[in-house]
Amino acid sequence: MDGTRTSLDIEEYSDTEVQKNQVLTLEEWQDKWVNGKTAFHQEQGHQLLKKHLDTFLKGKSGLRVFFPLCGKAVEMKWFADRGHSVVGVEISELGIQEFFTEQNLSYSEEPITEIPGTKVFKSSSGNISLYCCSIFDLPRTNIGKFDMIWDRGALVAINPGDRKCYADTMFSLLGKKFQYLLCVLSYDPTKHPGPPFYVPHAEIERLFGKICNIRCLEKVDAFEERHKSWGIDCLFEKLYLLTEK
C-alpha cells in the first residue's frame, strides 16, 4: 500500500471551527459572476446526480424540485425535460440570464411583489422559475412545498455562521416524503479558508438530524488541478440523501 486515501476511508478533519467566522457578502458573489470567477459551475452537470437520477425519480412526473443557490445549473433542465417543475433561487441576475441563454430557453421576467426590487424569471414553458433574491428572503414569497431539493454548491457556499438559518429555510420548503439530495466537500479547512466551505458529517447531523434521516450514498475523489491553488492536495465530495423521519 502506498498510503493513498480512497473514497471509502475519508477521515473527518478535527479543526472544524477554523472557518466559522468566514463571510462572503452577496455583493462579492455577484462580483464573481461579473468577473467570470465561476469555476464552481459544471458545464456537463453533476455526474453523481446523473448516475442516481432515475433511481431517485422512480419514474414519477410532476414533482416540484428546488435548487438553492442555483446559478446556471444545467441540471435544472434535466428535471424540466422529465416533466418536473423547477424552482431556483440565485442572487446573480447575470447567472440566471446565462442559464436561459445557454439552454436556449425563452423566458419572461416579473417583479417579486413580496420582495421589493427583486425579480423572478420564468421559462415560456412555465416549468422553470428562478427567483433573483437572497435565499433568506425566499420564504416571504409563499412558493409552496417541494418534493425534492438538489443542494450542490449551496450549503458549502453559505457562510458558516448562517447555516442554521439556511437549514431552517430548507425545512420550511420541504413537503411530505421529501428527498433532499446534498453534496458537501471534505478537505483540510486549515489550508483553505473557503468558500466552498468544509462541511463535516457531524455538521450535517447537527443541522438536519432532528428532522431528517441522513444517509451518505457515495464518496468520490473530486480533486482537480485547479484545487492546488487552494493549498490542498486532497478533496473529496460526498452525496447524501436526507429523508423524512
Score class of each variant (00 low, 15 high):
residue 166 Y to I: 01
residue 100 F to T: 01
residue 109 E to T: 10
residue 110 E to G: 07
residue 134 S to A: 06
residue 61 S to E: 15
residue 234 C to A: 15
residue 207 L to S: 02
residue 114 E to D: 07
residue 51 K to T: 14
residue 64 R to L: 03
residue 110 E to S: 15
residue 49 L to R: 02
residue 240 Y to K: 01
residue 86 V to P: 01
residue 108 S to C: 05
residue 184 V to W: 00
residue 11 E to W: 11
residue 176 K to E: 04
residue 210 K to V: 05
residue 198 Y to K: 15
residue 72 K to T: 07
residue 104 N to A: 11
residue 8 L to T: 08
residue 121 F to G: 00
residue 211 I to S: 14
residue 175 G to Q: 13
residue 221 D to E: 12
residue 158 I to Q: 06
residue 154 A to G: 07
residue 28 E to G: 13
residue 215 R to A: 14
residue 39 A to T: 13
residue 217 L to W: 14
residue 1 M to S: 09
residue 156 V to H: 04
residue 129 S to K: 14
residue 4 T to I: 04
residue 10 I to S: 09
residue 155 L to Q: 00
residue 76 M to L: 04
residue 141 T to C: 04
residue 187 Y to L: 06
residue 88 G to Y: 04
residue 89 V to E: 00
residue 145 K to T: 11
residue 194 G to C: 07
residue 48 L to D: 06
residue 203 E to R: 02
residue 239 L to W: 06
residue 94 L to R: 13
residue 106 S to H: 08
residue 228 K to R: 14
residue 134 S to H: 08
residue 135 I to G: 00
residue 201 H to C: 05
residue 36 G to T: 12
residue 29 W to L: 04
residue 208 F to E: 01
residue 7 S to W: 11
residue 244 E to C: 13
residue 167 A to F: 05
residue 75 E to Q: 04
residue 12 E to R: 10
residue 122 K to C: 09
residue 79 F to T: 04
residue 75 E to C: 03
residue 65 V to G: 01
residue 145 K to L: 04
residue 183 C to S: 14
residue 20 K to D: 06
residue 191 K to I: 12
residue 112 I to G: 05
residue 68 P to E: 00
residue 12 E to V: 06
residue 126 G to C: 12
residue 122 K to L: 06
residue 193 P to V: 04
residue 144 G to W: 05
residue 205 E to G: 10
residue 216 C to K: 15
residue 141 T to D: 04
residue 114 E to K: 09
residue 1 M to R: 12
residue 65 V to K: 00
residue 16 T to M: 14
residue 141 T to Q: 11
residue 179 Q to S: 10
residue 151 D to R: 00
residue 71 G to N: 04
residue 209 G to S: 05
residue 142 N to Y: 12
residue 85 S to K: 11
residue 238 K to Y: 02
residue 189 P to C: 06
residue 1 M to H: 03
residue 3 G to D: 12
residue 234 C to S: 14
residue 165 C to G: 04
residue 220 V to M: 14
residue 6 T to G: 08
residue 111 P to M: 12
residue 104 N to Q: 14
residue 38 T to A: 09
residue 185 L to R: 05
residue 164 K to A: 14
residue 178 F to G: 10
residue 177 K to H: 07
residue 140 R to M: 03
residue 4 T to E: 11
residue 244 E to Q: 14
residue 226 R to E: 15
residue 201 H to I: 01
residue 171 F to W: 13
residue 49 L to S: 07
residue 32 K to F: 13
residue 129 S to M: 06
residue 163 R to L: 06
residue 89 V to S: 06
residue 226 R to C: 15
residue 71 G to E: 04
residue 176 K to S: 09
residue 25 T to M: 10
residue 34 V to T: 14
residue 70 C to Q: 04
residue 213 N to Q: 10
residue 90 E to L: 04
residue 40 F to V: 06
residue 127 N to S: 15
residue 208 F to K: 06
residue 203 E to D: 14
residue 176 K to F: 08
residue 36 G to W: 12
residue 146 F to L: 04
residue 56 F to K: 15
residue 29 W to A: 06
residue 63 L to D: 02
residue 29 W to T: 06
residue 35 N to R: 05
residue 129 S to L: 07
residue 28 E to H: 11
residue 25 T to R: 10
residue 66 F to D: 00
residue 53 L to H: 07
residue 24 L to M: 14
residue 181 L to R: 01
residue 78 W to G: 02
residue 142 N to E: 08
residue 72 K to H: 06
residue 101 T to S: 10
residue 121 F to C: 14
residue 226 R to M: 12
residue 167 A to E: 00
residue 245 K to G: 09
residue 2 D to C: 15
residue 85 S to L: 10
residue 158 I to M: 05
residue 132 C to W: 04
residue 2 D to L: 08
residue 62 G to T: 13
residue 203 E to A: 09
residue 103 Q to I: 11
residue 85 S to W: 08
residue 205 E to F: 11
residue 177 K to D: 13
residue 219 K to Y: 08
residue 121 F to H: 01
residue 233 D to S: 14
residue 222 A to F: 02
residue 69 L to D: 03
residue 4 T to P: 13
residue 53 L to P: 02
residue 153 G to L: 13
residue 59 G to K: 03
residue 128 I to R: 01
residue 135 I to S: 00
residue 241 L to A: 13
residue 231 G to D: 14
residue 243 T to C: 15
residue 34 V to L: 07
residue 30 Q to S: 10
residue 77 K to Y: 02
residue 88 G to P: 05
residue 113 T to F: 03
residue 166 Y to W: 01
residue 80 A to E: 02
residue 138 L to E: 04
residue 86 V to D: 01
residue 40 F to W: 12
residue 231 G to L: 07
residue 30 Q to I: 12
residue 84 H to Y: 04
residue 219 K to P: 02
residue 17 E to G: 14
residue 196 P to K: 02
residue 46 H to E: 06
residue 235 L to S: 11
residue 124 S to Y: 11
residue 77 K to R: 10
residue 178 F to P: 01
residue 119 K to L: 02
residue 110 E to T: 12
residue 23 V to A: 13
residue 80 A to G: 02
residue 12 E to S: 10
residue 209 G to R: 08
residue 158 I to L: 09
residue 80 A to P: 02
residue 122 K to M: 05
residue 152 R to M: 07
residue 226 R to N: 11
residue 100 F to D: 02
residue 69 L to C: 11
residue 173 L to T: 11
residue 33 W to T: 04
residue 231 G to Y: 03
residue 229 S to L: 15
residue 202 A to W: 11
residue 212 C to D: 01
residue 36 G to S: 12
residue 184 V to N: 04
residue 201 H to T: 06
residue 144 G to V: 03
residue 37 K to H: 14
residue 35 N to M: 12
residue 176 K to V: 14
residue 189 P to G: 07
residue 221 D to Q: 07
residue 89 V to K: 00
residue 196 P to D: 04
residue 183 C to H: 08
residue 45 G to T: 12
residue 15 D to H: 15
residue 177 K to T: 12
residue 83 G to R: 03
residue 191 K to G: 07
residue 85 S to R: 07
residue 105 L to F: 03
residue 85 S to V: 13
residue 103 Q to C: 07
residue 243 T to D: 15
residue 211 I to T: 01
residue 74 V to C: 08
residue 203 E to W: 02
residue 36 G to Q: 11
residue 217 L to H: 01
residue 227 H to W: 05
residue 160 P to A: 08
residue 20 K to F: 12
residue 114 E to A: 15
residue 90 E to M: 07
residue 78 W to R: 03
residue 239 L to Y: 02
residue 66 F to K: 01
residue 182 L to H: 00
residue 129 S to W: 15
residue 125 S to G: 07
residue 23 V to H: 10
residue 182 L to P: 11
residue 73 A to S: 01
residue 146 F to R: 00
residue 84 H to I: 03
residue 16 T to W: 14
residue 54 D to R: 03
residue 201 H to Y: 13
residue 174 L to Q: 00
residue 112 I to A: 06
residue 132 C to D: 02
residue 85 S to T: 03
residue 129 S to V: 10
residue 64 R to I: 01
residue 151 D to I: 00
residue 32 K to I: 05
residue 61 S to A: 14
residue 17 E to R: 10
residue 8 L to V: 07
residue 170 M to S: 00
residue 42 Q to C: 08
residue 245 K to N: 12
residue 81 D to C: 05
residue 93 E to Q: 14
residue 231 G to C: 09
residue 22 Q to C: 14
residue 85 S to P: 04
residue 23 V to S: 12
residue 191 K to P: 03
residue 37 K to L: 13
residue 22 Q to K: 11
residue 158 I to Y: 04
residue 186 S to V: 07
residue 26 L to S: 04
residue 113 T to Q: 10
residue 179 Q to M: 11
residue 208 F to H: 00
residue 138 L to A: 12
residue 171 F to D: 08
residue 123 S to A: 05
residue 75 E to V: 05
residue 221 D to T: 06
residue 135 I to L: 14
residue 41 H to C: 11
residue 153 G to F: 08
residue 220 V to S: 05
residue 180 Y to P: 01
residue 64 R to F: 01
residue 145 K to G: 10
residue 136 F to A: 02
residue 229 S to H: 12
residue 222 A to K: 10
residue 202 A to T: 12
residue 120 V to I: 06
residue 236 F to N: 15
residue 86 V to R: 01
residue 12 E to L: 05
residue 59 G to I: 06
residue 170 M to T: 08
residue 41 H to A: 07
residue 1 M to I: 15
residue 206 R to S: 02
residue 192 H to Y: 15
residue 236 F to T: 06
residue 110 E to K: 15
residue 133 C to E: 00
residue 85 S to E: 13
residue 88 G to R: 00
residue 143 I to H: 12
residue 65 V to A: 06
residue 80 A to R: 02
residue 233 D to R: 15
residue 108 S to A: 09
residue 211 I to R: 11
residue 161 G to V: 14
residue 217 L to F: 07
residue 8 L to E: 12
residue 191 K to E: 03
residue 40 F to L: 06
residue 134 S to G: 04
residue 10 I to L: 09
residue 1 M to T: 12
residue 167 A to P: 00
residue 236 F to W: 13
residue 49 L to T: 04
residue 161 G to N: 14
residue 108 S to K: 06
residue 171 F to G: 12
residue 238 K to L: 02
residue 245 K to S: 05
residue 43 E to G: 10
residue 21 N to A: 14
residue 147 D to G: 02
residue 27 E to S: 14
residue 215 R to V: 05
residue 193 P to S: 12
residue 62 G to I: 05
residue 222 A to C: 14
residue 29 W to R: 04
residue 43 E to M: 12
residue 111 P to S: 07
residue 241 L to Q: 10
residue 90 E to C: 06
residue 113 T to L: 09
residue 132 C to S: 09
residue 197 F to I: 15
residue 146 F to Q: 05
residue 73 A to Y: 04
residue 80 A to Q: 03
residue 219 K to Q: 07
residue 169 T to D: 02
residue 110 E to V: 10
